[in-house]
Design a protein around this nucleic acid. Structure first.
Length: 299
DNA sequence: TTAAGTGTTGCTCT
DNA sequence: AAGAGCAACACTTA
């Protein structure tokens, strides 16, 4: 059975596209989605020369003014697109990088010459051939900036290693978990420890690993840590392979994923029991109380 | 109609 | 001082 032969709706929200009322679907940008964005930008923008850069909403710019970023980018050529956690880096041939974070519902769109920028375009690059790269972000939570290099930005932001980096192994995870009594879900979502996992994929990983989201990190056994790490990699890689973050929006996830059932009143794809929710500071966790048993702190 | 809900980051508070 | 809680944001649903 192929990994993606089940058509299911991925991590999506719907918003009305301006006064026209046309509904558009936007992926929630965690690691797999941003990897999809990276592939899109790499495939469409590589080698193109920037004719102009516009920031109709200066509020999304991180430490730079619209005039300055326009001046710095004009005449630059796109080299590659790189990703670290939920951040996208558009690297330029002279070495600097455009940094992008998509907040809760941003995404990049590539447009052919003559096409209008989509609604909620907060930043746009126009290329010499007339094409555009639009940074679309309805809720305006997200940032675009300019940095000397991706590594410099990552260090300054204090981000941990990318969740799929070789460095994030069982020993790494065991060390991070062993010295913290925080809920394992909070640990997985801490970008300073591991970069790339958000509320939705944290729920998916813990569901597939059979671990309750509120389990204290230091209560996990070595075996559970190993299983959690393997599940983490498999879930993220499967989501990437299934097209998370593609322009079509929906990732076509395999059967058995919690993500499409991540709504009130849905049922567990494994045991058929009701999905439960808990809340910690306005973040909702969806889980199956039968497949993910609660546990008391052990210290 | 009003209030709550959606997720991420960064700030405040303890 | 680690960890919890909330504001910002635009829009939908109850």
């Amino acid at each position: 059975m192929k990994a993606c032969d089940r058509a299911e709706t991925g991590a999506l929200i719907q918003v009305n596209a301006g006064a026209g009322g046309r509904k558009i679907e936007i992926p929630m940008p965690e690691l797999p989605d941003v990897e999809g964005f990276r592939q899109l930008v790499e495939a469409t923008c590589r080698g193109k020369t920037i004719a102009r850069a516009e920031a109709p909403d200066p509020g999304i710019l991180e430490g730079i003014t619209p005039v300055t970023i326009a001046r710095r980018l004009k005449g630059e050529r796109i080299a590659t697109a790189a990703r670290h956690g939920k951040h996208l880096f558009v690297t330029l041939t002279r070495g600097a990088v455009i940094t992008m974070h998509f907040g809760t519902n941003g995404s990049p769109r590539f447009l052919e010459p003559g096409a209008a920028d989509p609604p909620y375009t907060r930043f746009a690059l126009g290329f010499t051939g007339g094409e555009h790269l639009a940074y679309v972000n309805p809720r305006r939570i997200g940032r675009v900036g300019l940095a000397p290099s991706a590594d410099a930005y990552i260090a300054a932001a204090g981000l941990g290693p990318d969740a799929l980096a070789p460095q994030v192994g069982a020993a790494f995870l065991a060390q991070a978990a062993g010295r913290s009594k925080r809920a394992i879900k909070a640990l997985l979502m801490d970008q300073a420890i591991i970069a790339g996992i958000g509320n939705i994929y944290a729920d998916e990983i813990l569901f597939q690993a059979g671990i309750h989201p509120e389990t204290p990190a230091n209560a996990l056994s070595t075996g559970e840590i190993g299983g959690l790490l393997r599940t983490l990699r498999r879930v993220l890689e499967t989501a990437i392979a299934c097209g998370a973050g593609s322009e079509e929006g929906a990732a076509l996830l395999p059967k058995g994923f919690l993500l499409p059932e991540r709504h009130r009143g849905r049922r567990c794809p494994r045991c058929g029991g009701p999905i439960a929710t808990t809340k910690q500071s306005a973040r909702t966790s969806y889980f199956c109380p039968r497949c993910q048993k609660a546990r008391l702190p052990s210290d």
